Amino acid sequence: MSQLKKRDLLEAIVGQPASDGDGVKLTRVFGGSNSARFDPFLMLDEFGSDSAEDYIGGFPSHPHRGFETVTYMLEGRMLHEDHMGNRGLLEPGGVQWMTAGRGIIHSEMPQQDHGTMRGFQLWVNLPAAEKMQPAHYQDLPADAIPEYATGNGGSLKVIAGALELNGAAMSGAITGKSTEPLYLDLHLTPGEQVILPVPGSHNLVSYVYEGDIEVHGEERQAGLKAGRLGRFDKGDLLELKAGGQGARLLIIAGKPIGEPVVQYGPFVMNSEAEIHQAVRDFQQGTLAG
């Protein structure tokens, strides 16, 4: 039996300020150029402000085709509505996993005019064979997200995928996806250490949104502070240790698709011709069939 390999930190990425929708201020953690190294993931945005002017405009009606969006709310309330008459209210701790498939036109609007709005949106690519499937949703309230104790005072929310921790099997709310995504929200107490198994075939990133962690680096101990994304080398195990203030972080891994990616705004396909078709379909009102 071969020895299990710890994943080394390859690079630390600092998210960039951005604006989307109707002036919503956010941090683009990754996305855009050189996206192949994150395959099957396309983008991760963090939004968070206690100033209503930073989020009140929301995300008015807009289209998507060819991928999935995953919205995870930490604080605040956001209403989703689409052209098919679907409505869903995202509240603190809730998740919406939306498969845009062949097309959807929807809006995401804040349901508050004061207080904090905070959370994340992850874009997950679909393989070519699945891009033109009908759109559908999985809307999950906070109590539908399994949460497990780490054994040393911390906790682990398993949004998607399955893993073992300290010999115990842990299964998430979302399973059965072809890209086999693993999406975790890990809370560690000060100085707490965990070792998580991750499939060796998967690309892996981790985003620290509070506190800081030490991670296994190339022949050295490396760290990630709040607001930094770590991208890891191939391996079987992810070893993490929280700093003196503890840490809260997302761990995101998935099986690479390995297909060409051509993106034009909210359309993600495999060729320029398919992008042109998506634009025509949108203009002609046939994006979603």
Results as ranks from 00 to 15, higher is better:
D82Q: 13
G85P: 10
G66C: 13
Q96Y: 04
L89F: 06
E75H: 01
E75W: 00
L90F: 09
H80F: 06
V95I: 11
Q96E: 08
G66E: 09
S61T: 15
H80Y: 11
T69V: 08
E81Q: 11
R87P: 05
H62G: 05
M78N: 10
W97N: 07
G88W: 02
L79K: 03
G76W: 01
L74S: 12
V95H: 06
V95M: 09
P63H: 14
L74A: 10
R65F: 06
E68I: 02
E91H: 00
L90D: 08
T69P: 07
T71Q: 10
V70W: 03
L90A: 12
S61C: 10
S61I: 14
M73T: 07
H62L: 04
D82I: 07
L89S: 01
M78V: 12
P63I: 12
P60G: 09
L79V: 04
H80A: 13
H83F: 07
Y72R: 03
V95K: 01
G66I: 12
E75S: 08
H83M: 13
F67I: 10
Q96N: 13
S61M: 13
G66Y: 04
R87N: 14
T99F: 02
P60K: 07
N86Q: 13
G94L: 03
G93F: 10
Y72F: 13
G85V: 11
R77F: 07
E91N: 01
D82S: 08
R65W: 04
N86R: 03
Q96K: 02
H80Q: 13
E91M: 02
E68F: 01
V70T: 13
Q96V: 01
R87F: 11
G94R: 02
G94T: 06
H64C: 15
G85T: 07
G93N: 13
R87A: 15
G93I: 07
E68A: 07
N86Y: 00
H80R: 11
Y72M: 09
S61Q: 11
E91G: 00
E81S: 15
R87E: 15
G88A: 10
